[in-house]
Amino acid sequence: MTPDRRSALLRFWNQLPFFLWLVVLWMMLWGQFTVLAAVTGVAVAVGVTKVFHLPTAELSGRINLWYGLVFVLLFLGELVRGAVTVAWQALRPGATTSGVIAVQLRTDADLIMSHVAVTSSLIPGSLIIEADRERRILYLHVLGIRDQADADRQRRHVLVWEERIVRAVGSRTELAALKSPRTEAAR
């Protein structure tokens, strides 16, 4: 096999999970898991990947099923807790406090940063408003921030999610970054 063909085959296998995810996402958006939805999903996925060609995301090639399961279960619990907290803040008399915090991530991978940002935004009560890729900083708008202690607690909370994601799908290098002394969260 020629080096060019091998490179193309490797790119295909690296992009296949994302391509399949686009098809599944298309089917979920339409709420139909039919052959027609799958065929149109493939057509849309081909169009999206050809028109909006992005660089190949580097996957670690490592998946820890135990930590993946722990992540999913804790995330579902956090969704419920966040929804109850936000509902309570909406129903409680008085002004709800909020703030913008910056969180310095410990890992350098774009994919991990994206996962942390999406996870943080999906949990009710917090929303990513900006991501500084070069400095690995996520800026979040968070409900319930009254003082510096609340802001620090929320920063630690985001870093715990980063750790859970790295333990589930991160590379060995990213795991090592977690074990190094923690970086002080950006203020």
Rank of each mutant, 00 (worst) to 15 (best):
S60V: 07
R136C: 00
V35K: 08
D108G: 10
Q154L: 11
L54E: 07
L127K: 06
K179W: 06
E130P: 01
I137A: 01
V103Y: 05
I129A: 05
Q104H: 14
V118E: 15
T183Q: 13
S114G: 13
A149H: 09
V48M: 08
D147C: 14
G41L: 05
I112Y: 01
K179C: 03
F52N: 06
R5S: 14
V80W: 12
Y67N: 10
G68M: 11
G99E: 02
G144P: 04
V24W: 10
D4T: 13
E162I: 04
D108Q: 15
R136F: 02
I137M: 03
R182P: 06
Q154M: 15
V100R: 15
F71A: 03
V44H: 06
Y67E: 10
T40K: 04
L74A: 14
Q154G: 00
G144K: 05
T96W: 06
P17A: 06
R167E: 12
H141I: 04
T2H: 14
V70N: 07
P124E: 07
L74V: 09
W26P: 02
S180D: 09
G61E: 06
V158E: 00
V80E: 05
R155L: 05
H53A: 13
I137G: 00
P55D: 10
H53P: 04
L178Q: 05
P124R: 08
T96P: 08
S7I: 07
L143W: 09
W66Q: 13
Q15N: 13
V70Q: 13
R153G: 02
S180T: 14
K179G: 04
Q15K: 05
T56W: 01
G31L: 11
L10M: 12
N64F: 04
A102S: 15
V80S: 07
G47A: 07
R164M: 14
R81D: 09
A186M: 12
G31D: 09
N14Q: 12
A8M: 10
V116S: 00
L127G: 07
I101P: 02
E134T: 09
V142T: 10
